[in-house]
Amino acid sequence: MRRLILLRLGMSLLSLVLAAAFVFFVIQLSPVDPVVLALGEGADPRRLEAMRHELGLDRPYVLQFLSWFAGILRGDFGTSFFTHRAVLAMLGERLPVTVSLLVGGGTLAIAAGLAAGFAAGLRPGGWTDRVVTSTVSLALAVPGFWFALMLGLLFAVQLRLLPVAGYVALADGPLLWLRSLVLPSLALALHGTAVIGRHTRGVVVDVLGSPFIEAIRARGTPPGRILRRYVLKNAMVPVLPVIGVQLAIIIATSSVMEKVFVLPGLGTLMVASVISSDFPTLQGAIVVVAAMVILINLAVDLGLGLLDPRVRPQ
């Protein structure tokens, strides 16, 4: 297990470098010239040249990447083209919102998805299964942000139970924080629940049909024990990676929920920096998102290592 942890940690760091490099070089393909952006069209070519040199933009791309990435490791994400503030500070303000949404939406999706998937998979063809399967099909076709609008309409506008919009920091009151997260988390969890539920159902059906369950039944193990001891653990092995992917998708789609519920998270920051060609901010935000996803993948890999002896390196 120790070898697995070290191995996965190393791979995670490598993934982070690769992801950062990829983002950096993709963005370099942009026709937008940051110096022109800063000084305006038709600025004096010599001034453009001087500023380019000052910012190190006349160096080879590889060098530029290395100094940018070295900066990140030191905690220096550069300066926004648009607000001229330190990117790190801007990311720092927004990260708590994104993390809160991930925790809220992720917890809901995992809990509801697993519950629905097991309930359906244990009795395939039964009425629970039919209800779950059709709900999942419908849920997969409903756009999350439209669902969010409808939730807002129902709970906030009509019933006035929850806030329509806005974010309250945890420090300003846990209850208020929770209230501000309920609707966005619900909307965010919609697809994750459906995908996790659908996959879990299939896996449970497969595990129940596998030869070892037949062998275990032939030993006289009672059904409840088979379920708790064997089906659960064996089913989690293929479900865990799917949970990981869904959490990554929740991080990405939280950008849409941030817009619907007016929450100041990384998503809206990224959208704004795309529109204003604020590349240092965009790159920094994407690296932060990638780091979160890589952490999730790391957790999934280690979880798999705990569950399944076959993935542990010998």
């Binding site: 993934s15 690769l18 990829f22 942009s30 990405a252 990224m270 965009l282 994407i286 990638a290 993948n297």
Partner: peptide, 22 residues
Amino acid sequence: TDIFQSIPSLIFAFALIAVLGR
């Protein structure tokens, strides 16, 4: 493709739109 495992599709689409324009 591993890189795409760490950058969600929608976010990657943001980066591409930043480059390609809207």
